[in-house]
Protein backbone atom coordinates (compact mmCIF):
# COMPACT_ATOMS: atom_id res chain seq x y z
CA UNK A 1 0.00 0.00 0.00
CA UNK A 2 2.76 2.42 0.96
CA UNK A 3 4.55 1.55 -2.24
CA UNK A 4 1.39 2.36 -4.19
CA UNK A 5 0.92 5.72 -2.49
CA UNK A 6 4.58 6.54 -3.02
CA UNK A 7 4.38 5.77 -6.68
CA UNK A 8 1.16 7.76 -7.13
CA UNK A 9 2.78 10.74 -5.41
CA UNK A 10 5.82 10.41 -7.62
CA UNK A 11 3.71 10.42 -10.79
CA UNK A 12 1.58 13.24 -9.41
CA UNK A 13 4.62 15.46 -8.99
CA UNK A 14 5.92 14.58 -12.42
CA UNK A 15 2.55 15.30 -13.99
CA UNK A 16 2.17 18.50 -12.00
CA UNK A 17 5.56 20.00 -12.84
CA UNK A 18 4.66 21.43 -16.24
CA UNK A 19 1.43 22.81 -14.79
CA UNK A 20 3.25 24.58 -11.97
CA UNK A 21 5.70 26.26 -14.36
CA UNK A 22 2.86 27.49 -16.52
CA UNK A 23 0.61 28.45 -13.59
CA UNK A 24 3.29 30.55 -11.93
CA UNK A 25 4.14 32.13 -15.27
CA UNK A 26 0.52 33.05 -15.93
CA UNK A 27 0.05 34.31 -12.36
CA UNK A 28 2.89 36.77 -12.92
CA UNK A 29 1.49 37.85 -16.26
CA UNK A 30 -2.02 38.33 -14.88
CA UNK A 31 -0.76 40.14 -11.80
CA UNK A 32 0.56 42.83 -14.11
CA UNK A 33 -2.93 43.15 -15.60
CA UNK A 34 -2.37 41.18 -18.80
CA UNK A 35 -4.51 38.14 -19.54
CA UNK A 36 -2.66 35.67 -21.75
CA UNK A 37 -4.93 33.04 -23.21
CA UNK A 38 -2.14 31.95 -25.56
CA UNK A 39 -0.84 29.42 -23.01
CA UNK A 40 -1.88 26.30 -24.87
CA UNK A 41 -0.13 27.44 -28.04
CA UNK A 42 2.94 28.61 -26.14
CA UNK A 43 3.27 25.33 -24.22
CA UNK A 44 3.04 23.38 -27.46
CA UNK A 45 5.65 25.58 -29.13
CA UNK A 46 7.88 25.26 -26.07
CA UNK A 47 7.54 21.48 -26.22
CA UNK A 48 8.19 21.07 -29.95
CA UNK A 49 11.14 23.48 -30.05
CA UNK A 50 12.74 21.81 -27.03
CA UNK A 51 12.37 18.34 -28.46
CA UNK A 52 13.66 19.26 -31.92
CA UNK A 53 16.72 20.89 -30.35
CA UNK A 54 17.52 17.98 -28.10
CA UNK A 55 17.04 15.50 -30.94
CA UNK A 56 19.63 17.19 -33.14
CA UNK A 57 22.12 18.51 -30.57
CA UNK A 58 21.67 16.09 -27.72
CA UNK A 59 22.00 19.04 -25.38
CA UNK A 60 19.22 19.31 -22.80
CA UNK A 61 20.52 22.70 -21.68
CA UNK A 62 20.34 24.08 -25.20
CA UNK A 63 16.85 22.61 -25.57
CA UNK A 64 15.68 24.53 -22.50
CA UNK A 65 17.20 27.74 -23.85
CA UNK A 66 15.55 27.35 -27.26
CA UNK A 67 12.24 26.59 -25.62
CA UNK A 68 12.52 29.69 -23.42
CA UNK A 69 13.35 31.81 -26.48
CA UNK A 70 10.20 30.49 -28.15
CA UNK A 71 8.22 31.58 -25.11
CA UNK A 72 9.87 34.99 -25.18
CA UNK A 73 9.03 35.54 -28.86
CA UNK A 74 5.37 34.51 -28.54
CA UNK A 75 4.73 36.41 -25.31
CA UNK A 76 6.46 39.50 -26.73
CA UNK A 77 3.97 39.35 -29.57
CA UNK A 78 1.10 39.17 -27.09
CA UNK A 79 2.65 41.99 -25.05
CA UNK A 80 3.03 44.19 -28.11
CA UNK A 81 -0.57 43.60 -29.21
CA UNK A 82 -2.16 44.04 -25.80
CA UNK A 83 0.08 46.69 -24.20
CA UNK A 84 1.31 48.89 -27.04
CA UNK A 85 -1.54 48.36 -29.50
CA UNK A 86 -4.13 48.03 -26.70
CA UNK A 87 -5.78 45.20 -28.60
CA UNK A 88 -8.43 43.02 -27.01
CA UNK A 89 -6.38 40.62 -24.89
CA UNK A 90 -8.79 37.73 -25.26
CA UNK A 91 -8.60 37.93 -29.04
CA UNK A 92 -4.83 38.32 -29.05
CA UNK A 93 -4.37 35.39 -26.65
CA UNK A 94 -6.72 33.11 -28.55
CA UNK A 95 -4.99 33.87 -31.83
CA UNK A 96 -1.64 32.98 -30.27
CA UNK A 97 -3.10 29.67 -29.13
CA UNK A 98 -4.48 28.97 -32.61
CA UNK A 99 -1.22 30.02 -34.23
CA UNK A 100 0.99 28.13 -31.76
CA UNK A 101 -1.06 24.95 -31.93
CA UNK A 102 -1.00 24.92 -35.70
CA UNK A 103 2.65 25.85 -36.03
CA UNK A 104 3.77 23.28 -33.44
CA UNK A 105 1.88 20.54 -35.26
CA UNK A 106 3.33 21.67 -38.60
CA UNK A 107 6.88 21.76 -37.24
CA UNK A 108 6.35 18.30 -35.77
CA UNK A 109 5.80 17.04 -39.31
CA UNK A 110 8.66 18.97 -40.95
CA UNK A 111 11.57 19.20 -38.56
CA UNK A 112 12.20 15.46 -38.26
CA UNK A 113 14.89 13.56 -40.20
CA UNK A 114 14.19 12.28 -43.71
CA UNK A 115 14.50 8.71 -42.42
CA UNK A 116 11.37 9.32 -40.35
CA UNK A 117 9.48 11.03 -43.17
CA UNK A 118 10.50 14.40 -41.64
CA UNK A 119 8.28 13.60 -38.68
CA UNK A 120 9.34 14.28 -35.09
CA UNK A 121 6.69 11.89 -33.86
CA UNK A 122 8.02 8.57 -32.66
CA UNK A 123 11.61 9.71 -32.25
CA UNK A 124 13.62 9.26 -29.10
CA UNK A 125 15.96 11.93 -27.80
CA UNK A 126 17.86 12.77 -24.66
CA UNK A 127 15.61 13.27 -21.66
CA UNK A 128 15.71 14.45 -18.09
CA UNK A 129 15.73 11.38 -15.88
CA UNK A 130 14.73 11.25 -12.24
CA UNK A 131 17.56 10.92 -9.76
CA UNK A 132 17.21 10.15 -6.09
CA UNK A 133 18.59 12.45 -3.46
CA UNK A 134 20.56 10.21 -1.12
CA UNK A 135 18.95 9.69 2.26
CA UNK A 136 15.84 11.82 1.70
CA UNK A 137 14.53 9.57 -1.05
CA UNK A 138 14.51 6.63 1.36
CA UNK A 139 11.85 8.15 3.62
CA UNK A 140 8.54 6.29 3.12
CA UNK A 141 6.02 8.18 0.91
CA UNK A 142 7.87 11.54 1.19
CA UNK A 143 10.72 9.87 -0.62
CA UNK A 144 8.71 10.33 -3.81
CA UNK A 145 9.35 14.04 -3.54
CA UNK A 146 13.09 13.43 -3.68
CA UNK A 147 13.33 11.07 -6.61
CA UNK A 148 12.44 13.44 -9.45
CA UNK A 149 14.15 15.03 -12.43
CA UNK A 150 15.99 18.33 -12.22
CA UNK A 151 13.09 20.41 -13.63
CA UNK A 152 10.87 19.23 -10.79
CA UNK A 153 13.51 20.05 -8.21
CA UNK A 154 13.72 23.53 -9.72
CA UNK A 155 9.95 23.86 -9.30
CA UNK A 156 10.34 23.26 -5.57
CA UNK A 157 12.59 26.32 -5.56
CA UNK A 158 10.51 28.44 -7.91
CA UNK A 159 7.35 28.29 -5.81
CA UNK A 160 8.77 29.92 -2.65
CA UNK A 161 10.93 32.31 -4.64
CA UNK A 162 7.96 33.41 -6.76
CA UNK A 163 5.90 33.92 -3.62
CA UNK A 164 8.63 35.82 -1.80
CA UNK A 165 9.34 38.04 -4.78
CA UNK A 166 5.68 38.92 -5.19
CA UNK A 167 4.83 39.67 -1.58
CA UNK A 168 8.08 40.66 0.10
CA UNK A 169 10.08 42.69 -2.40
CA UNK A 170 9.84 46.16 -3.83
CA UNK A 171 9.47 44.84 -7.38
CA UNK A 172 6.68 42.51 -6.32
CA UNK A 173 4.81 45.39 -4.70
CA UNK A 174 5.14 47.45 -7.86
CA UNK A 175 3.96 44.51 -9.96
CA UNK A 176 0.83 44.02 -7.85
CA UNK A 177 0.07 47.74 -7.99
CA UNK A 178 0.26 47.77 -11.78
CA UNK A 179 -2.32 44.99 -11.98
CA UNK A 180 -4.61 46.50 -9.37
CA UNK A 181 -4.52 50.16 -10.33
CA UNK A 182 -2.29 51.22 -13.21
CA UNK A 183 -3.36 54.85 -12.73
CA UNK A 184 -1.98 54.79 -9.20
CA UNK A 185 1.17 52.97 -10.21
CA UNK A 186 1.77 55.50 -12.98
CA UNK A 187 1.32 58.46 -10.66
CA UNK A 188 3.73 56.83 -8.23
CA UNK A 189 6.44 56.75 -10.87
CA UNK A 190 6.16 53.10 -11.85
CA UNK A 191 6.51 52.52 -15.57
CA UNK A 192 3.28 50.65 -16.26
CA UNK A 193 4.11 49.66 -19.82
CA UNK A 194 7.58 48.40 -18.98
CA UNK A 195 6.30 46.43 -15.98
CA UNK A 196 3.62 44.79 -18.08
CA UNK A 197 6.09 43.91 -20.83
CA UNK A 198 8.56 42.40 -18.38
CA UNK A 199 6.10 40.15 -16.58
CA UNK A 200 4.22 39.13 -19.69
CA UNK A 201 7.53 37.94 -21.14
CA UNK A 202 8.81 36.38 -17.90
CA UNK A 203 5.47 34.60 -17.59
CA UNK A 204 5.64 33.41 -21.20
CA UNK A 205 9.12 32.02 -20.62
CA UNK A 206 7.93 29.93 -17.69
CA UNK A 207 4.94 28.72 -19.70
CA UNK A 208 7.23 27.52 -22.50
CA UNK A 209 9.39 25.72 -19.91
CA UNK A 210 6.26 23.95 -18.76
CA UNK A 211 5.86 22.74 -22.33
CA UNK A 212 9.52 21.69 -22.47
CA UNK A 213 9.05 19.51 -19.40
CA UNK A 214 6.39 17.55 -21.26
CA UNK A 215 8.60 16.74 -24.24
CA UNK A 216 11.90 16.38 -22.38
CA UNK A 217 10.74 14.42 -19.36
CA UNK A 218 7.09 13.62 -18.87
CA UNK A 219 6.29 12.11 -22.28
CA UNK A 220 9.21 12.22 -23.34
CA UNK A 221 9.18 12.87 -27.09
CA UNK A 222 6.79 14.69 -29.36
CA UNK A 223 3.24 13.89 -30.34
CA UNK A 224 0.59 16.17 -31.69
CA UNK A 225 -1.31 17.95 -28.94
CA UNK A 226 1.13 16.69 -26.34
CA UNK A 227 -0.26 19.18 -23.81
CA UNK A 228 -3.72 17.62 -23.87
CA UNK A 229 -5.33 20.95 -23.04
CA UNK A 230 -3.02 21.69 -20.12
CA UNK A 231 -2.79 25.32 -21.26
CA UNK A 232 -6.49 25.70 -20.59
CA UNK A 233 -6.30 23.85 -17.29
CA UNK A 234 -3.64 26.36 -16.23
CA UNK A 235 -6.03 29.27 -16.83
CA UNK A 236 -8.34 27.58 -14.33
CA UNK A 237 -5.51 26.80 -11.92
CA UNK A 238 -4.53 30.48 -11.82
CA UNK A 239 -8.00 31.35 -10.59
CA UNK A 240 -7.92 28.37 -8.24
CA UNK A 241 -4.65 29.76 -6.80
CA UNK A 242 -6.26 33.15 -6.30
CA UNK A 243 -3.25 34.62 -8.13
CA UNK A 244 -0.95 33.55 -5.30
CA UNK A 245 2.15 31.56 -6.38
CA UNK A 246 2.29 29.63 -3.11
CA UNK A 247 -1.11 28.16 -3.88
CA UNK A 248 -0.19 27.17 -7.45
CA UNK A 249 1.07 23.83 -6.19
CA UNK A 250 -2.33 22.64 -4.90
CA UNK A 251 -4.16 22.98 -8.16
CA UNK A 252 -1.33 21.41 -10.08
CA UNK A 253 -1.18 18.50 -7.65
CA UNK A 254 -4.94 18.06 -7.83
CA UNK A 255 -4.87 17.77 -11.61
CA UNK A 256 -1.65 15.74 -11.61
CA UNK A 257 -2.92 13.53 -8.79
CA UNK A 258 -6.20 12.62 -10.42
CA UNK A 259 -4.23 11.95 -13.58
CA UNK A 260 -1.88 9.60 -11.72
CA UNK A 261 -4.71 7.77 -10.01
CA UNK A 262 -6.67 7.23 -13.21
CA UNK A 263 -3.53 5.86 -14.91
CA UNK A 264 -3.13 3.42 -12.04
CA UNK A 265 -6.77 2.43 -12.27
CA UNK A 266 -6.46 1.78 -15.98
CA UNK A 267 -3.38 -0.36 -15.34
CA UNK A 268 -5.35 -2.54 -12.93
CA UNK A 269 -7.71 -3.40 -15.79
CA UNK A 270 -10.78 -1.78 -14.27
CA UNK A 271 -14.13 -2.01 -16.02
CA UNK A 272 -14.64 1.77 -15.88
CA UNK A 273 -14.33 3.01 -19.44
CA UNK A 274 -10.95 4.48 -20.34
CA UNK A 275 -12.29 7.67 -21.98
CA UNK A 276 -14.19 8.40 -18.79
CA UNK A 277 -11.05 7.98 -16.71
CA UNK A 278 -9.08 10.19 -19.12
CA UNK A 279 -11.75 12.84 -18.71
CA UNK A 280 -11.67 12.68 -14.92
CA UNK A 281 -8.81 15.12 -14.21
CA UNK A 282 -10.52 17.80 -16.32
CA UNK A 283 -13.91 17.31 -14.71
CA UNK A 284 -12.54 17.34 -11.19
CA UNK A 285 -10.54 20.48 -11.90
CA UNK A 286 -13.61 22.29 -13.19
CA UNK A 287 -15.81 21.15 -10.31
CA UNK A 288 -13.24 22.11 -7.68
CA UNK A 289 -12.70 25.44 -9.41
CA UNK A 290 -16.40 26.25 -9.39
CA UNK A 291 -16.76 25.26 -5.74
CA UNK A 292 -13.65 27.19 -4.71
CA UNK A 293 -14.65 30.35 -6.53
CA UNK A 294 -18.14 30.11 -5.12
CA UNK A 295 -16.75 29.69 -1.64
CA UNK A 296 -14.27 32.53 -2.01
CA UNK A 297 -16.96 34.81 -3.41
CA UNK A 298 -19.07 34.12 -0.35
CA UNK A 299 -16.12 35.23 1.74
CA UNK A 300 -15.60 38.27 -0.52
CA UNK A 301 -12.02 37.25 -1.10
CA UNK A 302 -11.98 37.07 -4.89
CA UNK A 303 -8.46 38.00 -5.79
CA UNK A 304 -8.48 38.84 -9.48
CA UNK A 305 -6.28 41.87 -10.18
CA UNK A 306 -8.72 44.74 -10.59
CA UNK A 307 -7.21 45.91 -13.89
CA UNK A 308 -6.89 42.43 -15.44
CA UNK A 309 -7.33 42.59 -19.22
CA UNK A 310 -7.93 46.35 -19.16
CA UNK A 311 -5.55 48.25 -21.46
CA UNK A 312 -3.97 51.27 -19.83
CA UNK A 313 -3.81 54.76 -21.27
CA UNK A 314 -2.93 57.88 -19.36
CA UNK A 315 -5.68 60.40 -18.70
CA UNK A 316 -8.72 58.22 -19.41
CA UNK A 317 -11.76 58.52 -17.21
Amino acid sequence: MIALITSILAITLRAGTSLIYATIGEIYTERSGILNLGLEGMMLMGAVSAFATVYYTGSLGLALIVSMLTGIVLSSLHAFLSITMRANQVVSGLSITLFGTGLASFLGQRLGPASNGHYLIGLIGEKFTPFAIPGLSKIPVIGAVFSQDILTYIVYLIIPVAWFYMYKTKNGLNLRAVGESPQTADAMGINVYRTRYIYTIVGGTLVALGGAHLSLSYAPGWTDNITGGRGWIVIALVIFSMWNPSRAIWGALLFGGINAIQFRLQATGTTISAPFLNMLPYIVTIVVLVLMTWFETLNKKVGAPAALAVPYMRGEK
Binding site: K170, L173, N174, R176, A177, E180, S181, Q183, T184, A185, A187, M188, G189, I190, A306
Partner: peptide
Protein backbone atom coordinates in the same frame (compact mmCIF):
# COMPACT_ATOMS: atom_id res chain seq x y z
CA UNK B 1 -6.95 59.35 -5.08
CA UNK B 2 -3.99 57.39 -6.35
CA UNK B 3 -4.19 54.55 -3.87
CA UNK B 4 -4.31 50.80 -4.39
CA UNK B 5 -7.39 49.79 -2.43
CA UNK B 6 -6.35 46.21 -1.75
CA UNK B 7 -3.06 47.23 -0.16
CA UNK B 8 -2.13 48.62 3.24
CA UNK B 9 -1.21 52.19 4.03
CA UNK B 10 2.48 51.28 4.34
CA UNK B 11 2.53 49.49 0.99
CA UNK B 12 0.85 52.45 -0.68
CA UNK B 13 3.26 54.90 0.86
CA UNK B 14 6.36 53.18 -0.52
CA UNK B 15 4.83 52.23 -3.87
CA UNK B 16 7.27 52.86 -6.70
CA UNK B 17 10.00 54.25 -4.45
Amino acid sequence: FKLVETMTVAENVILGL
